[in-house]
Every structure is written in structure tokens, then in C-alpha cells.
Design a protein around this nucleic acid. Structure first.
Lengths: 214, 214
DNA sequence: CGATATTTGTCAACGGTGTTGACATCGTCT
DNA sequence: AGACGATGTCAACACCGTTGACAAATATCG
């Protein structure tokens, strides 16, 4: 077998995690898939966390390419949607990003792009930083929440939503009048559409803080 | 020692997880804290997951009590801040939301309150549902992301933020000009303050969708 | 080329995890 | 008192991430 490289390891790791799920992903299984001793991985990554992070960055490649240039809103909007898609495509990776800052190339590229757009739009440094954090938290956070359902087949997902709606519909109407009344309206559209609604409202609110006005 | 009960176990578990952090929380440590054999816990909970869910339910108690009545924004704002606090105190809540567990009383109370406030504010059913999902995604999602750092002591957390800032500051200024320039402004204030900024901007955007105008 | 130094792979092992099954003990009810 | 189910205890299983010692391969240099 060819020698181990970080690239080969990450490729194999993404394949393994796609097969067994993030919960069951382990260094030992990765070693098996690579036909190598599991501990050989530690010659290329200091820890499993570092490996997971590299896997996350891999799935973000190309996310910041060819973005809309028409406006800062359009650019950040598209960028956020792509980040979300990348996280959902590799559901396991979404929860791995967690609280650590971007250190890898694609992550840094995303940060740079978003900060640049915000500054060019007219935000001062402090507000731009706040806005950046706000968009990232909504994007990554919502992807993390949605990742479980996103990995289900569409039919099962729809069934789950329907089940949840009927849960609300059958609540005690005295204690939970609004929940019962609004049960049919809950979980409207797709999770992607709900995210875009939230993102657009957040961008509305951010636009309102522009010195030049919205 | 008195006999074990689910209540006693959950109380002790929340104490233990507060001391050692969610990452290091284990059934064995819980057994030590209870001065009982670790496996005795399995007489009261089928699995660690079930215990974590019970802990999550406990930490949500009282979240919807005595909320501000001055305005829908003030009410939802406070409610979201409290949900976040509960989530940060008990990160297991995140996995509660992600899966499809039976909906518990406290969770239902939160939904009912938020939906009621939005309807009373003048949102139609569809927009209220969208707004509800938007607020919840930001609140839970951001709490999930921040939970790792929130469990660190303040001094260590500040040191971590400083470290991250200096990471940005030492990037290649040619490739990442905005990141380098804005390094001192990144991670401003506390994670709680950054969340509240995002929440307020989202509420700004939602207010703009009120039929009666903002 | 040969010798040396560095990197990389292998192996065994450590301390930790959640969980299970067998066995002993306790409380309760007939 | 005896029976019985619920509860606590103990040892053990099958994993996990990670480390240190040692061997093989590779790169570096005289």
C-alpha cells in the first residue's frame, strides 16, 4: 500500500464517517479502511480532533469561489447557504466545528470574504465583527441542528415533520391554544427554506445598522 | 446513604457535569458523587442518553416563568436568553432537539409562549411559524456552538480568545488583509453579548415583517 | 557509494468509556 | 415467615483515544 499522507487519510476518513456515522467513527476503523495500523494516523495528525477539523475543511473546498458580486447581501447570503450545504452534505462534520476558530485554508477564506464584504458595505470594524459572528452562528448552528433530519430520506423526513405537527395538534387546547391552532403551520416548507428566511431577517437587521442606512 | 431515585441521580448528575464539564462527564464519576456503584444508575435509566435527556428536561424548568409583558420583543428576547443559558448549562439539550424525542412539558411551554407572543404581536400564522423557527434555530444553534467554551473558566476562556485573535493577526496580510486588520475586533465582548447582538438583529428583521410595520 | 539522521509504520499497553450479566441484599406484600 | 421483585454490588466485555518503545523505510550528507 502507498504511504500515508494527510490527504489520503482525510479522504478515507470522510468515506468511513459517511458509512458508519459520526457517532461510530473511530481511529481504529479508519486504520482498518486504510489497511494500516490505527496509530500511524498520529504521525500525521496530533489528535483525532485535528483530523476531524481537517475533514471539515476539506468539505468546505470551493465554497468561497465565484460568489455574487452584485451586493454584500447577495454575496454573504450565497456564502452562508453554501456553508450550510457543505455542513449538511457531511452531517457528521457540522457538529465538529463547534467553538474553535477557523485555522484551515478554506475556513480562513470564508472568514476573509465575509469580513471584506461587510467592511466594503460600510460597517465599522466592531460592527462588522459582530455581524460576522452573528451570521456564522446562525449558519453553523442551524446546520448543526438540521443535520440529523437532513441525513434522513425525504419520505421519512416528511413523515417525521407530520408526526411532530400532529403531536402539537393533539395537545390540550386549554393549556396550549396557540400550539394547537398553529400546528398545521409549523415546520413550513423545507429546513433549507426556513434557514433562508431566518438568514434574510438577520441580514435585514444587520442592514439596519449600516451608518449609511439600510 | 439514602436510596437512589431518578430525581437524586439527575440532581447529582447536573452537579457533576457542572464540575467536570460535559466532555468529562461519565457514569463512573456520577457513581462516585452518589457514593454508589456506577452501574446502579442503570436500575433507574436505561442508558446514559436517557439520563442526559432527563437532565435536559430538568434544566429547562422555570424558563418560561415570569417573563416580561411589556412587549413581544422583550418577552421573546428574555425567553431566548434563558433558553440559551439553560442550553449552555446543559449541552445535552442540543441532542434533545436534534433527535425526535417525545416532547416534554417545559419544551411545549416555551413553544406555546413564543407562538402566542408572535400571534399577539400581529404576525399571521405562517409568518409566526417562520419567525418561531428562526429564533429557535439561532438560539439553540448558537448555544450548541458556544457550549464548549462556555464550560471553561473565565480566565482560560479569555486567554483562548486572545490566542485566536493573535492567530488572525499573524496571517499572511496579502492573502487575508481584512482578517489581519480586524483581528483585534474579532470575538468582541462575551459570547453571550455576541448572541444578544445577533438575536436583536434577527428581531429587528422580524419586526420589519409585521403587517402593521416595525 | 556508505553512513547517518529523520520520518514513518508497527506493536503492546495504559487508562478511560458505556454497558451487561450474575449474584447478593433490601423492602414489601401475602 | 416466606416469597418475590426491586435495587445495589462486583467483575468483566468490548470498545475508545493516545503514548512509548522499537523496527523499517526514507531522506540527507560526507
Amino acid at each position: 500500500m502507498a504511504r500515508l499522507t494527510p490527504d489520503r487519510i482525510v479522504t478515507a476518513a470522510i468515506e468511513v464517517i459517511g458509512e458508519v456515522g459520526s457517532e461510530q467513527f473511530s481511529v481504529r476503523k479508519l486504520g482498518d479502511a486504510l489497511d494500516a495500523d490505527p496509530t500511524a494516523i498520529y504521525r500525521h495528525f496530533r489528535s483525532k480532533d485535528e483530523l476531524l477539523r481537517a475533514m471539515g475543511d476539506r468539505s468546505l473546498s470551493g465554497v468561497a469561489d465565484a460568489l455574487p458580486t452584485s451586493s454584500w447581501r447577495a454575496c454573504i447570503r450565497e456564502l452562508s447557504i453554501r456553508i450550510r450545504a457543505a455542513n449538511l452534505a457531511q452531517p457528521a462534520l457540522a457538529s465538529l466545528v463547534r467553538g474553535a476558530p477557523p485555522r484551515h485554508r478554506n475556513e480562513l477564506l470564508i472568514t476573509e470574504t465575509m469580513l471584506g464584504q461587510l467592511r466594503d458595505a460600510g460597517f465599522d470594524a466592531v460592527t462588522a465583527a459582530e455581524a460576522y459572528h452573528a451570521v456564522i452562528e446562525l449558519t453553523i448552528g442551524s446546520a448543526t441542528i438540521d443535520s440529523t433530519l437532513a441525513s434522513m430520506p425525504a419520505s421519512e423526513r416528511d413523515r417525521t415533520y407530520a408526526e411532530w405537527r400532529s403531536d402539537y395538534a393533539t395537545l390540550d387546547a386549554e393549556a396550549f391554544p396557540h400550539s394547537v391552532a398553529m400546528a398545521p403551520s409549523l415546520y413550513p416548507g423545507t429546513a433549507d427554506e426556513r434557514f433562508v428566511f431566518a438568514l434574510d431577517r438577520l441580514l435585514d437587521g444587520l442592514a439596519g445598522r449600516l451608518p449609511t442606512g439600510p
